[in-house]
């Protein structure tokens, strides 16, 4: 029989049901960052906590299969490059570095405020991936069997 990893069946079932709702809430917070409280930082942490929920309930092996950690690392490094590229695009459009170069739209609409929602999405990806990577690295650490010097 396969070795049981993670927590009990109750925890696993509840996690399977709720993790997608938590991720959806994180996306909601990120996308409405320019209208309501929240934004890239808060939403990114919510998504990272959803992944952490899976990691705590199911164990390391399942999470590695489900999420592909090497892909997450690349996504993390890519997001900061995207941030810079968006700033340079503003230069090409004849504005200053990191300035808003898309139309402003109507106030209180979801698709408004030019580059602010785009920056929010990039920062959300960045924060979520980097915080989950820290938890991933720390969870693989075994202090007790650590070698001497």
């Amino acid at each position: 029989m396969k070795r049981q990893t993670g927590m009990t069946l109750i925890v696993k079932t509840i996690t399977r049901l709720t993790v997608w709702l938590i991720i959806l809430y994180g996306f909601y917070i990120i996308l409405h960052g320019h209208l309501t409280p929240g934004g890239g930082f808060g939403g990114g942490v919510i998504i990272a906590l959803a992944f952490l929920n899976v990691l705590l309930a199911y164990g390391r092996e399942f999470t590695d299969k489900w999420l592909k950690i090497s892909f997450l690392e690349k996504l993390e490094s890519l997001s900061i490059i995207l941030f810079l590229l968006l700033g340079i695009t503003a230069l090409l459009a004849g504005k200053l570095f990191l300035e808003n170069f898309i139309g402003k739209g109507h106030l209180y609409h979801l698709l408004s405020a030019g580059t602010i929602p785009v920056f929010n999405i990039i920062i959300g990806i960045k924060v979520a991936m980097s915080l989950f990577l820290v938890i991933w690295i720390l969870s693989g650490l075994k202090l007790e069997e650590g070698e001497e010097a």
Partner: peptide
Amino acid sequence: LGTTALLVSLVAKLFQKYR
């Protein structure tokens, strides 16, 4: 939070070396 994570990893490394 980033600096806290860095400090935690450094302290864990110190614990591995000096117990």
